[in-house]
Amino acid sequence: MSELNTVEAEFHRVDRRPLRTAAVVGTGLIGTSVGLALSARGVTTYLLDRDPEVAREAAALGAGRAARPPHPVDLAVLAMPPSAIPSALIEYQRSGLAHYFTDVGSVKLPPQRTAATAGADLRGYVGGHPMAGAERSGPSAARADLFHGRTWVLTPSARTDPAAVARASELIRLCGAELLLMDAAEHDRTVALTSHAPHLLASLIAGRLADTDPARLRLAGAGLRDTTRIALGDPDLWTDILRSNAAPVAEVLREVADELAVAVAALDWLAGPDPAQQLRGERELHHLLSLGVAGRERLPAAAAQPAGR
């Protein structure tokens, strides 16, 4: 039995008590949305942020109390960029903020390894990643239903206490998401394909518009807007994400680059005078476009979003 299967089997045998108290460290979009969801379900939630004013803004929206809890809470959620997670985990474990910890970072293996090397107690920690977000950032963009129907990955290590997984799974249930247990390395390879590389590619396409004549942009249709929507993400956060998951993202982009080279060659053939090369170019493009259709059709239906969002 694999380490993940062992943790999963033990997790199902753990007595899962209700989550009564929680702390959210980092009150941006995701952290504030977690606070809103938990507070709406009756969980006493404390909000901490390196900028106290941001925590107070989240509290004013109903996400919890902008204060440090007087006693260790049941679960602390670290809502911050991947590179900040290891030091925050160690700091708050040592200060007794919570009995168990999770995070919402979009890269899992490097923070886990760094935290272990730096002396974090991995028994009380399980990595997490809700597959939800928005182009806008900050507390004002948060909403309690952000995670409804979305997949929320947990990546326990071999040292993770099943009780920590149980606590984090209760968080996921209260937020209306669906739990998926994954190996940390497999998670990082997967999101490189499904999230990180697409974000960078969208940014590269959108970047071509930066110096374009505004009159030409009046021709932009829904396809361009859909393709570049995610390019509005915070560059500081996304630089951190891409740095943390650099090797898997580079692997995906190398494969895309190979196919881009094929597409460029095919277009050059089509633009040239040789009928044989034109036919070859047409076949190459048709093959690439057909692969795109086949891949797109494999995607599961997206979770329904509230009206107006």
Rank of each mutant, 00 (worst) to 15 (best):
A118P: 04
A59H: 02
P81V: 09
L97Q: 04
V73T: 09
P69D: 10
Y46G: 03
V126S: 00
V54D: 01
L61C: 11
G124D: 01
A63G: 07
E53G: 13
I85A: 02
R68E: 14
R50E: 13
D51M: 11
A58R: 01
L89E: 00
R136A: 15
P82Q: 02
R50H: 14
P110V: 05
H71F: 14
T117S: 14
A120Q: 02
P69A: 10
P52Q: 13
A66T: 07
S83D: 14
S83T: 13
L109D: 03
A115P: 06
D49H: 07
P139R: 00
V126Q: 02
I85H: 03
S137E: 15
D103T: 08
T44D: 13
A60P: 10
A141S: 13
S137A: 15
L48D: 00
A144W: 04
A98F: 05
A115L: 04
S83K: 13
G64P: 00
T117M: 14
A98P: 01
P52D: 13
D145V: 07
T45W: 01
Y46W: 13
V126H: 06
A115N: 05
L97N: 06
T114H: 12
G128Q: 06
V107A: 02
L122V: 06
R136M: 14
I85E: 00
A142G: 08
D74N: 10
V107L: 07
D121N: 12
A142M: 09
P139G: 10
P69N: 12
A132C: 10
R68P: 08
A67T: 03
A59D: 05
S137Q: 14
